[in-house]
Write a protein that binds this DNA or RNA. Structure first.
Lengths: 170, 170
DNA sequence: ATGTATGCAAACCATTTGCAATGAC
DNA sequence: GTCATTGCAAATGGTTTGCATACAT
């Protein structure tokens, strides 16, 4: 797969999101996105900070945290908490839904490509891992929040219309 | 289902675990287990601390953290980190593997009984939830750690044998 | 020109740790 | 009696926050 094409697509999506929400298009934000989409596996904030600094782009941790929040909000990045105290993140595209084997002893996380756990091949792979329990985590927006957001948007639009009317009156 | 029977079974399992690992059988440990198996849903440390104190059993937070570690180790309790900064726990038995719908907006976690996500009924239920992404988290012991543990046990046994021989010589 | 975003340092808070006192063995 | 466990208080460390400065609009 062509990664530079993916990066461009993702950059466009981010721009669209920033525009829509009236957020500024700062160089930091694009640099962080670029960096994240140059890695494939999991990363945490510390490693992101270090690798960005090393590669010559200086950002503060505060900005990293701010920006990752935006990237989560527009679903370009996904967040995991496997049990250690640091949150892990990973890019959302070019790296689709996959499963995670998490060792309760050493904390190692192995990715596990895709889909149905219960095929023969997958079973064979799992043999080398002593499963204690599993859980499907499905992230999204609940019905209540979807409606709340819709209401908010509606209200915003109304206010904007009012403003326009006021401006016109002037 | 008979909960008092489950509690007894679980208590026995815990005793076995404590014996096997030469840990002491303190009243605190049993009270905590009892408390956890009187709840069905998720809980965090703060709520466990509060409800235990309110019900008249005073334990320190330190002991709660120590004990939950043991309960995780013997698989009587399961730990989740859904995205908030507090870890969530839940009892492992009488509450078998189920899925979780986690709202990225309000943080609410809904349990989702059992198994195959892709039946018609499940799909219908999911309609009210706007899915962003999902991930299967499979917890267990990796191959490396299984072998490491086995080696450790073996070594321990050897030492014990040596001790016995020494004792006999006396 | 305006006000959002950044960077720094301080604050926060769940969890961990150190240590004296307790109590299981 | 011994030493693991408890409880308290202090430390830790990832993440968040407050505020002055920089810069996107």
């Amino acid at each position: 797969m062509d990664n530079s094409k993916l990066k461009e697509q993702v950059r466009n999506e981010f721009t669209e999101y920033l525009n829509l929400h009236k957020h500024r298009k700062t160089p930091e934000r694009y640099a962080i996105l670029e960096h994240i989409y140059s890695t494939k596996g999991h990363f945490d904030m510390e490693s992101l900070y270090v690798t960005m600094t090393e590669s010559g782009f200086r950002v503060s941790r505060a900005t990293l945290y701010n920006t990752i929040e935006l990237l989560l909000d527009c679903s370009l990045v996904v967040k995991h908490q496997f049990g250690a105290n640091v949150s892990q993140y990973e890019r959302a595209y070019g790296n689709e839904n996959h499963d995670h084997l998490i060792c309760l002893n050493c904390g190692e996380v192995k990715e596990y490509k895709n889909g149905n756990l219960f095929t023969a091949t997958q079973q064979r792979k799992l043999q080398r891992f002593r499963v204690s329990y599993y859980s499907m985590y499905i992230y999204g927006i609940c019905n209540k929040c979807v409606r709340a957001k819709a209401a908010e948007e509606k209200k915003k639009k109304k206010t904007e219309n009012t403003n326009i009317r006021i401006n016109k009156k002037k």
